[in-house]
Design a protein around this nucleic acid. Structure first.
Lengths: 129, 129
DNA sequence: CGGTATCCTAGATGATACTG
DNA sequence: CAGTATCATCTAGGATACCG
């Protein structure tokens, strides 16, 4: 599972792509947010929906299902009326949350700079066209 | 820029979505790999293409342009014949690479477990359908 | 060598309605 | 409450051809 790269190594790098496949799943529009919302404690479906904000019901369902299939999230159903479903992080999910929170923290520290850079480019383009 | 969440706080969370927007850009299919390939030293366009492997020319162009617009990557053109273009990480790009490499490292440590879990679910579904 | 331009498709996402 | 089902839209990404 070596991701180091010898200089100018030609051809494809299968390990890179296996890792990339997982990363691009983690990096979809909602996954990281969902995991973040589960760090503190288990949450119910609609609770997560409110916390995340702006996610459609369907996408929350899919996101949670993917996380469950990858072993990051545990789904527990309480057969009450009305039904209650609680989502929590597995051990692997908790360990994932550590680098994820570090990344989120980096984004928070740098988001002003990123957004202002994007904005300035936009203005520049607007001047040209 | 508070990402902490008071319990059951209703409504949308704009900060979450600003962060999410950046994260989902970072998490696309190629960005993280591209940044990783630039950590060691600057690289030329086709060098990156070879290192990443499997990326189309167009997507590499787009990925690098996005990173440049966000201030992560510096693009330096040497007006030689044939043309030579070198990409390197900016200071912000270097600082980004730290949490990114930690995340990549986490994936490497857990990828076997994730892939086997996915595979076992696939077998299970194949038995049903 | 390091790109653009164009076209195309699968999949991601959203909106809405319905259900146990 | 916690979903499914269905339909519509948008975009990421690939393939290919061309360019300075």
């Amino acid at each position: 599972m070596d991701m180091t790269v010898s200089p100018d190594q030609p051809g494809d790098n299968p390990n890179c792509r296996r890792v990339s496949a997982v990363l691009s799943r983690l990096g979809d529009k909602w996954t990281i947010l969902a995991v973040t919302m589960l760090v503190e404690r288990p949450r119910r479906f609609n609770e997560l929906k409110r916390l995340i904000g702006g996610i459609s019901q369907q996408m929350l369902t899919r996101t949670l299902k993917s996380l469950e299939q990858d072993g990051m999230v545990l789904r527990k159903v309480y057969p009450t009326i009305p039904p209650k479903v609680e989502y929590s992080l597995t051990t692997m999910g908790q360990s994932l949350s550590e680098p994820l929170l570090q990344l989120a923290s980096w984004v928070l520290k740098n988001i002003e700079q990123i957004e202002s850079k994007r904005a300035s480019l936009k203005i520049h383009n607007d001047e040209i066209f």
